[in-house]
């Protein structure tokens, strides 16, 4: 399952996309009338960040840590169309300084993933192509304008993503590209400075593009190990000024790398998942390291199981 949660990613640089099966980020499929549900726990932290492009520490926040527990479910509407739902609870804290931490339920995301080109053999390679459309919206009235400790951006987002997957002898590579639009965000104050004064409580949120490449070894949809490279780029936004606070509409970019795995235990439908991500470079974000662990359980409502992949 998947921690693809942009607002959070952008806000904290703590979380990262992870690659697990049947997410909105891979070309693997839940068979028709199969439901997969589970919980993922993730811990991320950073003690250095990029103020614009300037790399620094800040003794007044020390180490910022983020804990997340996320409920997720993925369902096969049919063999070529999956629905994916996620809802995280997040707790953010700083180890130094006086600022109080934040916690709560963040945004509900819903995505639909459609096969555009089914698993097709071409020479010795299997090809897969999928399209995803999704969106997320805040479930609670959490404080957005309190970076780096707010649990999200409080925007409602819509995104589309293309996924291409190629496989040979159980080795595979998956490439994804996505583009996300974000709604305006209302904050609690009536004026804020970006590169100019804005006499408004409305913040325009720049769009976000994301590209990812994953290479791995896959026994089937529930057993694989992969290496990840990810580039996230905010299209627009502004840099944090010297010694200023971060802001919602900053130009937040990140380049990350990591590893992820999923392993099914026996044939009972239970799988464990784990991942680790590290930030190589960034802009207006923390240099975060993240570890996650999760368990999902798959139920087949067809009575008979068909592994299609």
């Amino acid at each position: 399952m998947q921690l693809k949660h942009y607002p959070l990613l952008l806000a904290l640089g703590l979380l990262s996309s992870q690659a697990q099966a049947q997410t909105d980020n891979d070309a693997l499929w839940m068979p028709k009338k199969n439901l997969c549900g589970g919980i993922i726990y993730q811990h991320g932290q950073w003690n250095h960040y990029w103020e614009g492009t300037f790399y620094r520490e800040n003794l007044n926040i020390g180490t910022v840590s983020s804990k997340m527990a996320m409920a997720m479910a993925s369902y096969g509407i049919n063999d070529n169309l999956n629905a994916i739902v996620m809802l995280p609870w997040i707790k953010n804290q700083a180890s130094a300084g006086t600022l109080i931490g934040q916690q709560g339920v963040q945004d509900l995301s819903v995505a639909l993933k459609q096969h555009l080109l089914g698993r097709t053999l071409c020479g010795k390679y299997y090809f897969n192509l999928a399209g995803v459309a999704g969106g997320s919206t805040p479930m609670t009235n959490y404080v957005a304008d309190y970076l780096p400790l707010s649990i999200g951006m409080h925007s409602t987002n819509g995104y589309v993503r293309a996924i291409a997957d190629v496989e040979r002898n159980k080795w595979y590579a998956t490439a994804t590209a996505s583009y996300m639009l974000r709604s305006n965000v209302k904050i609690d104050r009536t004026a804020y400075y970006t590169t100019e004064m804005n006499y408004s409580n409305v913040v325009r949120m720049p769009s976000v593009a994301n590209m990812m490449l994953r290479i791995g070894y896959r026994l089937n949809a529930d057993k694989f190990v992969e290496l990840i490279a990810e580039r996230m780029e905010t299209i627009g936004g502004f840099d944090i000024r010297r010694n200023d606070m971060p802001f919602l509409s900053n130009n937040m970019d990140a380049l990350r790398t990591g590893i992820a795995a999923k392993w099914a235990l026996g044939k009972g439908g239970l799988s464990l998942m784990g991942s680790g991500m590290y930030t190589l470079a960034g802009r207006n974000m923390g240099r975060s390291t993240m570890l996650s662990l999760g368990a999902v359980y798959q139920i087949d409502f067809n009575k008979k199981t068909i592994i299609t992949n």
Binding site: L81, Q114, G131, G158, V160, S183, N184, Y199, R204
Partner: peptide, 25 residues
């Protein structure tokens, strides 16, 4: 099924652009 996906994507984009059209500055 493809058309559902693109209807959904279209909706998301339309919704998003409605909110973005305002000039709050």
């Amino acid at each position: 099924m493809n058309k559902y996906i693109f209807t959904f994507a279209g909706l998301a984009l339309t919704l998003s652009s409605c909110v973005r059209d305002r000039e709050p500055f």
